[in-house]
Every structure is written in C-alpha cells, then in structure tokens.
Amino acid sequence: MTAQAELEREETETMTVREAIREALREELARDEDVYIMGEDVGAFGGVLEVTGDLYEEFGEERVRDTPIAEAGYVGAATGAAATGTRPVIELMFSDFIGVSMEQIMNQMAKMRYMFGGKTEIPVTVRATEGGGMGAASQHSGTVHAWISHFPGLKAVAPGTAAAAKGLTKAAIRSNDPVFVFENKMIYEQQGDVPTDEDYIVPIGEAAVEREGEDVTVVATQRLVGESLDVADRLAGDVSVEVIDPRSLYPLDTETIAESLRKTGRMVVADETPLSYGTHAEIITRAQEEAFFSLDAPIQRVGTPDTHMPFSTPLEQEVLPDGEGVENAIRRIT
C-alpha cells in the first residue's frame, strides 16, 4: 500500500514536520508520565530548532528539562535513566554533537542490553538535526546517520514527510530499545497530512512507497524524498518513477525495496550521508542480494561527495545532493 493510501484511511490534519514532531512529543508526554525530555534550552526557550516550543508551559521543568552543555553527561545519564525505569527523550540539537557523546552511545547505550544477557531494556530516544543547506558550516551540517545505523544495538529512523515524522517519533518513544530520530533541518517547515489518532505510529522497520512507478525506483531519505517526488512529477509521461522513503534506516525494510526493484529493474539511492561507506552502500547491497537478476542497469547513488559541508553558498550547493543529481542519475539508466 502506498503512503498516500495509508493516510487516506486516517483522519488527518495538515501541519509542518516541526509541528508533527512536537505533536508526537506532546502526545507521548501526556500518555506516559515516565516519558520526559532533556536537552539544551528545550524548556522555556522552546528549543534552538523551535521543536519543543510550548511543551514546557504544558508539562513543566521536570518533564521538559534544560541541561548544561554536557552532551556526554546527559546522553550517558539518559542511558542510565532508561536502564532504571524511566523513558528519556534527548534533544541533541545538531547531530554533529553526537561526536561529543559518542562514548556513551557506542559503548554503553548500544551494548548494555546485549552484554547484560538481555536483562536490561534501554528505552531511550535521541533526536538530532542533520543536513546542510543553511550555511551552518562543517560543524553544524553533518549527516551522520550511517554511523548510528552501522553500530549494532542502535535503531535509527529518518523521516522525509510530516506523517512519518510524527509516527516515527512516537514509535521511537514507545520502543524499549535505543532509537535515534534524525530530522533534516531543511524540512522542518515542509507541510503534510498527519494522522490525528493518538495511537498512530509508523512501525520502526517499515518503508513507505510515496509514489508508484514502473520504470525506476528511487529510494530517497529525508529532504531528498520531497525532491525526488518533484523529479518524478517533472519526468511523468517520460519516465515513470517510483519513490520509496525507507523511513527506518535500521532496521531497514529490505523487502519493500527489493519488491520495487523486481518491478522496475532500475534503482537510484539518494541520501545525504557522504558517499563512501554511506547509507547508500547498505541499501544497494541488500537490494542486489534480493533482486540481482531483476537488475537492468547498475544501481546509482546520490550523496555528499566525501567532503565536509563548506560554508560559502556556492560550495555548499555544489556538494549537497539534490533533485538535479537524482534526475541525472535516473536519466543515465533509463
């Protein structure tokens, strides 16, 4: 079923990605009193990314807690808290700051459950914003979800639409495992239809077919979902493009992708991680493992060309993967 058909069965409201995440947080804070938010200036200030907004007014400072600038400390504390009966939701602000907290993520959060023989649950959610496009330069524009997806013991989701943003955030908070929610900063204002049902979730590990097509499959994430849909519109009548948003990076819905590839025989993977050892590599490997004999052309990838995000606009625009790159890749194989 396409994502659109899925939504047509629900009562929806139009809202931005930012509002959709805030609604998810609001509903989960209201539903479960063990859930609380921690991060820098998430309280009265409303968050640097303006996502937590008015949640502080509604839930108070214990449940929407400001922290010192201490990512290693509060990500570690969240892990310890999650292991001991509460369900913290961390706002890490820029995903580049994962670097500061990496020890607690890779050696504690990711490993505790397994090392302890499965006797501990770590129900922690970490939200972080990714991506270039606003001149924020190399230390505030990273797309790092491949690291987290690579690391055993962590789950990672990355919405490309408002509905997915809400459904995935809620699923992350309800999960008993560590889940990272990667929000692309360029799509916070993107609008979409979002189910109002308080129990609407997007199960972690389910991709969405955002548009059906016959000639080529574009697997796109985050900002590139919308850009790929635009490309599909532009090419309609000429090339029929199927667009899939994996939504969940780990676990990854291999079957939905493979099924599409069996139909189209051609595939482009578009994701903002740097190309080498990026998210593309995993998606492509799995796709060819499942559907190699359906392939009519080499699978193409669109990503950041192994540079950091430069500051100056023409440089940033040069390295940012975009619809033009997706279109060129489609043209080459169709």
Partner: peptide, 21 residues
C-alpha cells in the same frame, strides 16, 4: 573519491547534485 567530482565539473560543468557518477 573527491577528485572525480572536481574533474567532472571541469569537463561537464553544472553541479554534480551529489550524483556519484
């Protein structure tokens, strides 16, 4: 890995849009 993009720009012109080929 990085050079290929620079040389493609030199020969083709136009932004790569992150396209790896």
């Amino acid at each position: 890995e990085v050079e290929q993009f620079a040389s493609r720009l030199r020969t083709d012109g136009g932004s790569s849009g992150g396209d790896s080929r």
